[in-house]
Design a protein around this nucleic acid. Structure first.
Lengths: 377, 377
DNA sequence: ATTATTACCTGAATCGATTCAGATGATAGC
DNA sequence: GCTATCATCTGAATCGATTCAGGTAATAAT
């Protein structure tokens, strides 16, 4: 790594404002404003002069903040995540969702503000000696798209107090907002049924976080029942219902491992733990492809064959899962579409539509190479 | 897909302001402000009353825009891309870069505003009947991180006119700003040398965009020379120098295909075209893994073996490349680190550091399965 | 008992624009 | 020649807070 340093230009001290331009030219401030915002309100001549003087004086154009204050509009949409952005964007599917939102809102002139949950470490603790409000309450936006799991999440609450238009994403059970979600339960059932049809009867479930205060490890029935993250809860139920519907008993046939992070590394830990159970699961149901891919890596490293010894079914169909070896069987969900719908719904609200809409997108099982019949013997 | 609609709550009409709270309580506005911003400036008793009255009246806390105007600070960093966000986030490495930035700036209380280039289609043309300034000029931020290729890009120019602190990323040749880049030329040389060492003498180069107005197709020497996107230009030079250094002639040994988008689909087109050249290239040098992966897919579909018949070397080492089959040989660049350095450099400027720093991060050749000796025959 | 602190609170100025109801003069209509 | 219309431009109000130099009254110091 190479680093070079040099001197910088001196920074402009006193800022040039619209008023300065007006004074210099002997015209009213409103005229200068019009030169920028309503060219038809003044003679082309004068406008030319205004623009020219502005340049001469180093006026950089109307200050966006002042304009927003006066107009009452920011042309910005807040995309809120419960976790720090540095974690959120660890997951490749975050980008797809952003892409979808952008597809809808960008051409309407909106920009996207990323708002992450609190970073909790000593550095931020030190920062919090200053009186800080949750960033969600201090952010300048016209509306929010909230990607949130738990109803009691502080970030969510802070966001709600803003009284701005909101669209909730992947959040089940709160009918007070417009929302976009997927068929989580159906998706989980599809995954489980797939391996059930292949004769599997022992399952290892790799679960996403169940509550905000989470740690890696096997989850007891009680812990499972205490799940507050709605997506996790519903997928878990999907797995369970499918398994029970097949005449099996959940407690006897499925071990559930709760992960603290949605990362391949956690998937590896989970797999290691689940493979140590007796009887050993022959099928792994993972709530995300990130986890599934980690599990896959670990299992192969143990010298076991996938799907010969163990079948794996993921969830999300993230880009890359198709390239795994073997390619990952997974439950596809339309990430980009989710973003598009969220954007569309928020846009409608911003344009005054007060009706409340809820969109549920379909999931689809994609059978690839990581799943197969239960091993004989 | 399921859609439900229902009635929404009525929206609050006249907004409750700090002044309303002050009036209701018979105190000065400054006191209410202090209740929120400097609790030590008033008695706990009164503060309690203020907060309570605020809640009673439905006051949502200090308006962020007004606060920003007064304070002269937004606590927001603009991340500027030359292309629309909907395209930018098509590339998985965009997320990694965001992650890196967030890692640095998030805990300092900054949020990230995504600013994309102009969407140019009929819809936005229709929008432009309104007098709109480039969004980069209307966005409320304290500073910019600009990810930009061409020096003459209008988005870049608009950004510069703001007179705010800036860090340029992946932009070579402009020493007037702090910047973060990678060893692009070295990386390209590493890629080319790798296949040269394996005896290859016929190359197909799959290039990224060379200019803003670009279209897919073979690029003549003139077109290559006219490249304005600096990253493309430098990588191209790297390939070329390595090849000439090996005693080969660029024109005779390398066909260059320029792609319009950095997508696998374009990579496939490029591969199709390059394979049709005579003599047929035995090694493909792609300027991104997205392109390389597309090429790989196409070549395998043609019944050719990689690396048996054709070697492929990518660039970027994006997540997923390792899972390709065969795993992709590529030039690794530290995406997250790039973000971190950009964030750090901007933060320094925001804190008053006026020195100008330029960081160049190393690249590294990662040899995996997609490259091998030149086919005998 | 007098002065110095301290704790708590207020008023007015300010941040940088936008907006809209007019004022002014010039042109057009009859 | 007189009114109506039009094209330009201006002034003042406003958006919603923050800040800082004081002002009081109560407490502490001498």
């Amino acid at each position: 790594m190479t680093v070079k340093r040099g001197a910088n230009k001196t920074k402009a001290k006193g800022r040039v404002t619209l008023k300065d331009v007006a004074r210099e030219l002997g015209v009213a401030a409103s005229t200068v404003s019009n030169a920028y915002n309503r060219p038809d309100q003044l003679s082309p001549d004068l406008r030319e002069k205004v623009l020219h003087t502005a340049e001469k004086l180093g006026y950089l154009g109307p200050d966006p903040t002042a304009r927003s204050l006066r107009r009452g509009v920011t042309n910005t949409i807040g995309l809120v995540y419960p976790s720090p952005l540095s974690y959120t964007f660890t997951d490749p599917i975050a980008g797809l969702f952003v892409q979808g939102i952008a597809l809808e809102v960008e051409r309407q002139g909106y920009t996207l503000l990323l708002v992450g949950g609190e970073v909790d470490d000593d550095v931020s603790a030190q920062r919090s000696t200053k009186p800080t409000l949750a960033t969600a309450t201090t952010v300048q936006v016209d509306g929010f798209i909230v990607h949130c799991f738990a109803s009691d999440d502080p970030v969510l609450e802070a966001t709600l107090t803003r009284g701005l238009p909101i669209v909730m994403v992947d959040h089940h059970g709160n009918e007070a907002f417009s929302s976009v979600k997927i068929e989580d339960e159906l998706g989980a059932k599809q995954a489980a049924n797939h391996v059930l049809e292949h004769g599997h009867t022992q399952f290892g479930v790799i679960s996403l976080e169940m509550t905000p205060k989470t740690r890696s490890g096997l989850a007891t029935l009680d812990q499972q029942a205490a799940t507050t993250y709605t997506t996790t809860k519903i997928r878990l139920e999907g797995y369970r219902r499918a398994i029970e519907r097949a005449g099996l008993t959940w407690e006897a046939c499925a071990s559930v491992y709760e992960t603290a992070d949605n990362t391949p590394a956690e998937g590896e830990l989970a797999a290691a733990c689940l493979l140590a159970q007796t009887p050993r699961p022959t099928a792994i149901l993972a709530m995300s492809d990130q986890l599934a891919l980690g599990a896959l890596a670990h299992i192969k490293r143990q010298g076991l064959d996938v799907p010969g010894d163990v079948s794996i079914v993921g969830f999300d169909d993230m880009p890359g899962s198709i390239h795994a070896s073997p390619p990952l069987t997974t439950v596809h969900q339309p990430h980009v579409d989710k973003g598009k719908h969220a954007g569309k719904l928020l846009l409608a609200q911003l344009q005054g539509d007060t009706s409340l809409a809820s969109v549920t997108l379909p999931t689809k099982l994609i059978v690839r190479g990581s799943s197969g019949p239960v091993p004989q013997k």
